[in-house]
Design a protein around this nucleic acid. Structure first.
Length: 168
DNA sequence: CTTCTAACCTAATCAGATC
DNA sequence: GATCTGATTAGGTTAGAAG
């Protein structure tokens, strides 16, 4: 497995457009023997290839998705989660002041882009990946409650087959 | 323009902390 | 034990880079 790079060779810094992280190019793959790496493995991998740990998680997420789909097409059983599970990420204790900050940001924008998340990470002292999880959980639990959810965020409800790999 | 896939999303679920 | 909430997963969409 090798280092991810952007097309121009620079590390992804700022998002563009709606605020996504700059795309990396993974070569060739980060999917190793264990499709469900624990936090320890993720961190070690991240360190080995000098990238943030959340990117490793995203890479594995996508890879699992693709592999699973392929297994379905080929009518092969997907091994799934077998064997001893590695430890999870330790539960982050979010303090009252951090929650207040996040809540204020959530009221302003339910879908903060990478720039906003990084700013929040700086302000709260929490990792950007935890901020993202916080917003995900917040949206999930306050959907319906909040009357004015911005109509946005990747048209989710229009489920359609598709995705990474085409049928074999 | 088309294809590929990293980045992102939801929904469901698991699990630690607190009461 | 119930509740709250952070973490993880499966499975989907979006958008940027490469061909």
């Amino acid at each position: 497995m090798t280092l991810p790079t952007t097309s121009d060779g620079t590390l992804p810094a700022e998002s563009r457009g709606r605020g996504r992280r700059r795309r990396l190019v993974w070569t060739p793959t980060c999917f190793e023997r264990n499709p469900h790496p624990g936090i320890a493995t993720s961190e070690r991998l991240a360190q080995d290839i000098s990238i943030p740990e959340p990117w490793v998680q995203i890479c594995f997420q996508n890879e699992r998705s693709c592999q699973l789909r392929q297994h379905r097409w080929e009518s092969r059983p997907w091994p799934g989660k077998h064997g001893p599970q590695e430890g999870r990420q330790k539960r982050t204790a979010v303090t009252g002041s951090q929650t207040a900050l996040l809540l204020r940001a959530f009221e302003k924008d339910h879908f903060p882009g990478i720039a906003a998340r990084e700013e929040l990470a700086r302000e709260t002292g929490l990792p950007e990946s935890r901020i993202q999880i916080w917003f995900q959980n917040r949206r999930a639990r306050h959907r319906g409650q909040a009357s004015s959810v911005p109509a946005q965020a990747g048209g989710l409800c229009n489920a359609a087959p598709g995705g990474c790999h085409p049928a074999p």
